[in-house]
Design a protein around this nucleic acid. Structure first.
Lengths: 221, 221
DNA sequence: TTTTGTATAATTGTATACACTTATACAATA
DNA sequence: TATTGTATAAGTGTATACAATTATACAAAA
């Protein structure tokens, strides 16, 4: 899928509109006209149509037949709900990873953590972007290691969702450090083949992120 | 979304291909040519393309740029994984429903159960289709009652997925009866505003379906 | 003023045309 | 024979054309 998304126009348009919705450029109930967007991006209506149909499936856009496409948007409650769901599923993911992970994947996780720790030790201060990318890599590797196509799919979707939507929000240095420590603990539990522990740690890891989120005004409702 | 799916050609083509993959007409790695399918359904390539792009997002089709679309298919393990995930999320759904459900929704759930019980009492034997439809309605109402757009979306997707894929498989009369009893228990817990109980019951409800699945050869791996 | 009807414009839905990429067949060459 | 090159065919990617539907403006009627 990722392959396709980069190579085709339709795929790029899809990603672009997706981001513009999640980062707030297009606001709730905005009408998305095929022609307008097409001109804006310098493409014809066809790839735009494809993109809008895909976005509808993701729930970011509502299409009314013969009328148009409208931004559904994503509320703070939506984000919060995603985290609640993720906290359960990331736990499940870690538990399954204990049974399915390969040595190569263990090495990759280790490497990701090492790189993260290195970033945080830099005298010149850490790059928030780099840290976010490494965090994404860690979770992505975990999804892969679960050995479940379905679980990987749904978790990757959610992760991508909130990552884009929260790009503006701040992650404190303190939280970043703790997050990496938690990643290391999860990895250790998986190495030890302790499924229970891995599940609990992964679970709590997401809940800690949620606590941080709460401070920034994301509430349950 | 449902509105659109019925009214537009693209939507119908999407549903059609989706079913043909899930019910096994198109098998794993089959190539889906836009022209061929278009002719088969009497439409042009455009709606077919839209459908294939959407199916890719759902994970049922893999698109290789400039090459074509191939059926990804859905394995027994996939179905099993979906049930594991569902058992957690249906539990969460029931817990949330306790806090968000309206009186009207309670009535609708009650009605659905009554209709199910009526079906099972019929002298002429029960209609499996009717029972399946009522089961779908019960769960759909629960998703709505959770008050979470996100949870509803992901659960509805999964439910639809397995429902279509398992249409061939048999549901015993015994299992159908027990299922309805379990629905009633869940409803009672929600009425009593007992979130813990509702969660546990909904959780177990799905696990019971899984036990039934196991008998029919669906295994963990 | 409010409502209704109608012509026009704007937008979506679908089909088709053309460009580009990839697959296939087959000949030329080693 | 095995390999490579090339022409042809087939298929996808995108743009455009046309049809169908819906929105808008404005006049006519109550």
């Amino acid at each position: 899928m990722e392959e396709y998304q980069d190579h085709s126009l339709g795929g790029r348009v899809f990603q672009r509109i997706r981001e513009d919705i999640l980062n707030g450029k297009y606001k709730e109930n905005d009408e998305l006209r095929e022609n307008t967007i097409g001109k804006e991006l310098g493409v014809s209506r066809t790839p735009v149509r494809e993109a809008l149909r895909q976005l509808e499936l993701e729930g970011l856009v509502t299409i009314i037949p013969n009328r148009g496409a409208y931004v559904t948007g994503i509320s703070h409650k939506d984000i919060w709900d995603i985290y609640v769901i993720r906290s359960m599923l990331e736990g499940l993911c870690a538990r399954w990873a204990v049974e399915h992970i390969t040595d190569a994947q263990l090495d990759e996780l280790e490497e990701t953590i090492l790189l993260s720790e290195f970033q945080m030790k830099k005298e010149s201060g850490f790059s928030a972007e780099q840290i976010a990318a490494l965090d994404g890599r860690f979770h992505s590797l975990m999804y892969e290691a679960s050995g479940s196509r379905i679980l990987r799919h749904v978790l990757a979707d959610f992760h991508n969702y909130v990552q884009t939507a929260r790009r503006s929000s701040v992650v404190s240095e303190d939280r970043a450090r703790k997050s990496i420590r938690e990643h290391r603990q999860i990895l250790r539990a998986i190495r030890d083949r302790d499924g229970e522990m891995a599940e609990q740690l992964a679970n709590e890891h997401i809940m800690h992120v949620m606590q941080n989120l709460k401070k920034q005004g994301y509430e349950q409702e």
